[in-house]
């Protein structure tokens, strides 16, 4: 009888193993790679609200409309952001060509001056729109820039996640991304990040990102977008909230949106 028990147990384990989701065997790096790809949308139209809160609880609210589209087989994402409110910055536009392998190109158009300024940005660690989100947070980084380690599994808001540590391979990468270590919680069901803890260049706890809501925007290709992101700066006590009010998957966004000519047409 003892023998049977062992056989049944072994068989049971095997069945469990086989029927479990296929990503069980993924390495940390593969998980992160899939997570980067899970949010890459061929094209989209978005209305969102950015709330920037300082350490005394004072708020700055910006409503923005944006369109995005992937080019070069997904290696380049072009984005056009237009400010809708407050009234004094209404019409201000930001055009970004986000390249995978080199520094981004950025242009800002200021309607009150009818002038477009090129923004030279080599640092992805810079804060976006004065918020706690950095440019690095807005777009997935280069996969090979980091080493990955699967630390375990943990639930975040009742979603089971992998807990993965990302460490920049060298100091230049750390400087560029603005962190020395990031612990990321990636959901097993959709590969979207649910939580991330950032450690600054001195190794101290710096920021914490929580993703409250995720939406499958492109069901055909299983592409997702976070709808509600909160970034808390644990050192300065500031906080930024980015909420997507409306999102429309659209791979056929007009190419002419992504030109400085269109940027200035306001």
């Amino acid at each position: 009888m003892k023998k049977y028990k062992i056989i049944i147990l072994a068989f049971g384990t095997l069945v469990l193993f086989l029927t479990a989701e296929p990503q069980e065997n993924l390495t940390a790096k593969q998980i992160v790679d899939r997570s980067f790809k899970a949010t890459k949308l061929a094209g989209s139209e978005i209305l969102s609200t950015m709330t920037i809160i300082d350490d005394k609880g004072r708020e700055r609210v910006r409503k923005i409309a944006s369109v995005t589209k992937l080019y070069d087989n997904g290696e380049t994402e072009k984005r056009l952001i237009r400010f809708l409110s407050p009234p004094d910055v209404k019409g201000t536009g930001l055009l970004t060509f986000d390249y995978e392998k080199r520094d981004d190109d950025m242009w800002l158009f200021m309607p009150a001056l009818r002038k477009t300024r090129r923004i030279v940005s080599t640092e992805k660690a810079k804060n976006f729109m004065g918020s706690e989100f950095t440019y690095a947070d807005m777009t997935p980084p280069i996969l090979d820039d980091f080493s990955y380690e699967l630390l375990g599994e943990e639930d975040v808001n009742e979603t089971s996640c992998w807990r993965i540590e990302m460490i920049p391979v060298n100091e230049d990468v750390a400087d560029e991304n603005g962190f020395s270590k990031r612990v990321t919680f990636i959901a097993q069901q959709d590969f979207v990040i649910r939580r991330a803890v950032y450690y600054d260049l001195d190794g101290e706890l710096h920021k914490e990102l929580s993703v409250e809501e995720v939406k499958e925007v492109d069901p055909e290709n299983h592409k997702y977008r976070p709808m509600h992101m909160i970034m808390v700066n644990k050192q300065e006590g500031r906080k930024s909230i980015l909420i997507v009010d409306e999102i429309q998957f659209n791979p056929d966004v007009k190419d002419e949106f992504f030109t400085t000519r269109y940027l200035e047409r306001y």
Binding site: V89, M110, K126, N127, F128, R238
Partner: peptide, 19 residues
């Protein structure tokens, strides 16, 4: 104009530190 000032601030915030 007020708008121009606000937009310059926005330009700055695109590559500056929040504080």
């Amino acid at each position: 104009t007020r708008n121009a000032v606000a937009q310059y601030f926005e330009l700055y915030s695109m590559s500056g530190d929040p504080d």
